[in-house]
Each structure stands twice: as structure tokens, then as C-alpha cells.
């Protein structure tokens, strides 16, 4: 009795493991298919531009507002800590470095995953549920080239832009709190920042990070949509999976990238 229940436990574990490996392989093959078919969709660039509008431009408001608030909070918290060591002048460096290296790329990617990634999954999942993808295949239109690849590339291209906007708004927010509200010196704020920030190590690495996050989030979003069960319930659980998997992937990738970069 106990023997058979423990066997069932191991069997269930093995089943899930095999399923996870199988799914990972499927993601890789799906990624390869996107890359193979993206030539056609990049030649019809208006398709990508349309998706950049929905994924990128419409995310701008949330990116701008949250970047501003993150910068303002960094300004307040950084000031109250730095002032204890008598180095409140370094606030500009603190705000800029924490935004450029970590918070900008990571938070922008998390927002992008929940704002646009979930929308992409829901859209593709619903297309699948209403058999639009099958209809395309019947009409000899490759659904990966027509639907999936433009959304993937739109996400990859939008993410660095959104992260850069997030960084700039965050620095403005920190400037607003530090200089306008608290009354630090305007010149010291910028010169401390300029001394600390390096173009290559900080800004370029941050942009590379956001490019990688963009690719990861877009791949997860289109895959979950394409892989969704063609029912209302299936689409809803696929949307949830997109947000959860994206968030975990972003944070794990961030650790790996940081370990290599800095």
C-alpha cells in the first residue's frame, strides 16, 4: 500500500518533469520557427509597426508614470539613508546607478510583461480558440509569419525604448525630490551622477539587459498564446502563466546577466 503510493508520487514527479522538458523543447523549436519565418514578416514591416503601437506606444503611459514614482521614491529613501553618513550629495549617483543598472530594465520589463505580454497571449489565444489561426493555415498563410513573428519583434524592439524612457523619467523623479523638494545643489546632483555613471558599463549594459528581457517576455507571451487550450478557460490560464513565467524569467535572467556584466 505504502509502496504503491510512493510509486505514484515518483510517477507523478517524473510525469511533470518529462512534461516540463518537453515543453522547453517545444519553446526552443517554436523560437527557431519564429526566427526562420521572421524574414517574411520583417519584409512587411507595417505589420511590426502595428504591433509596436499596441505593445510599445500604449505601454508608454504606465512606464512614464511608474518611472517617475520609482525615481521619486529612490530620491526620498536614498536621501534619508545618505544624509546619515553626511553624503547626501551622492544622491544623483545613487538614483542614476540604481535605475540604469537594475531598476530601469527590470521594472520596465515586469510592467511590459503584465501590460503587453498578457495582451499578446490573450489575443493569440483567442485567435486560436476562434480558429482564426487554422483558417489562416487553410488559406496557405503561415500563422507564425503573419501573427507570431511581428508580435515577437515588436516586443524585442519596444523593450529597450521603454526601459530608456523609464530611466529618464526616474532620473527626473529623483531630481524633482532631491533638488526641488529637499533642496540639494543642482550642480552637485548632476556632476556626482556624471562622475559615477559610465556609458559602457552602465547605460549600454542596461540596454542589453532590456533587449534580452524584451526577447524573453515576447517569446513567453507568443508561446503561451500559441500553446493555449482553445477554450475560454485555457486562454485565461495561459494569460496568467505568461505574467508569472515572465516575472520569474526576468528576475532569474537579471541575476545571470548582472553576474556576467558587473
Amino acid at each position: 500500500m505504502a509502496d504503491s503510493s510512493s510509486r505514484n508520487l515518483f510517477a507523478a514527479f517524473g510525469h511533470r518533469l518529462i512534461e516540463a522538458v518537453w515543453k522547453l523543447g517545444f519553446v526552443c523549436r517554436f523560437f527557431a520557427a519564429i526566427l526562420r519565418d521572421s524574414g517574411a514578416s520583417l519584409r512587411r514591416f507595417p505589420l511590426v509597426i502595428r504591433e509596436i503601437y499596441f505593445a510599445g506606444v500604449l505601454s508608454m503611459i504606465i512606464i512614464v508614470v511608474s518611472g517617475m514614482f520609482v525615481g521619486m521614491v529612490l530620491g526620498l529613501q536614498g536621501y534619508s539613508t545618505l544624509v546619515r553618513f553626511g553624503s547626501a550629495d551622492a544622491l544623483g549617483a545613487l538614483v542614476a546607478l540604481s535605475l540604469l543598472r537594475e531598476l530601469g530594465p527590470v521594472l520596465a520589463a515586469l510592467l511590459f510583461a503584465s501590460r503587453s505580454g498578457s495582451a499578446i497571449t490573450a489575443e493569440i489565444g483567442l485567435m486560436k480558440a476562434t480558429e482564426q489561426l487554422d483558417a489562416m493555415a487553410v488559406m496557405a498563410v503561415n500563422p507564425i509569419a503573419r501573427v507570431v513573428a511581428p508580435r515577437f519583434w515588436a516586443g524585442v524592439l519596444s523593450m529597450p525604448v521603454l526601459a530608456a524612457i523609464f530611466n529618464v523619467m526616474g532620473i527626473f523623479g529623483g531630481y524633482f525630490v532631491g533638488v526641488t523638494l529637499i533642496g540639494l545643489d543642482h550642480g552637485t546632483f548632476w556632476s556626482q551622477m556624471q562622475n559615477a555613471v559610465d556609458w559602457h558599463t552602465d547605460i549600454v549594459n542596461g540596454l542589453i539587459k532590456s533587449l534580452v528581457f524584451g526577447a524573453a517576455v515576447s517569446l513567453i507571451a507568443v508561446f503561451e498564446g500559441f500553446d493555449a487550450k482553445p477554450t475560454a478557460e485555457g486562454v485565461s490560464s495561459a494569460t496568467t502563466r505568461t505574467v508569472v513565467t515572465s516575472a520569474l524569467t526576468i528576475l532569474a535572467l537579471d541575476f545571470v546577466l548582472t553576474a556576467f556584466m558587473f
Binding site: 509597426i49 509596436i52 503601437y53 510599445g56 506606444v57 508608454m60 542614476a96 540604469l100 519596444s158 529597450p160 525604448v161 521603454l162 530608456a164 524612457i165 530611466n167 529618464v168 532620473i171 548632476w190 551622477m193 556624471q194 555613471v197 559610465d198 556609458w199 552602465d202 547605460i203 540596454l207
Partner: peptide, 20 residues
């Protein structure tokens, strides 16, 4: 999308010139 791309370029330029 043009405005979006221009804003992105402006943001990177700002980061390059003003912060770095």
C-alpha cells in the same frame, strides 16, 4: 510609432550626454 521611436532616441541621447 514614429513619436515613440523619437522619444526612445531622445532618452538614450539624454542618458549618454547628461548622466554619463
Amino acid at each position: 510609432v514614429g513619436i515613440f521611436a523619437a522619444l526612445g532616441c531622445a532618452a538614450v541621447l539624454f542618458l549618454a550626454l547628461k548622466t554619463a
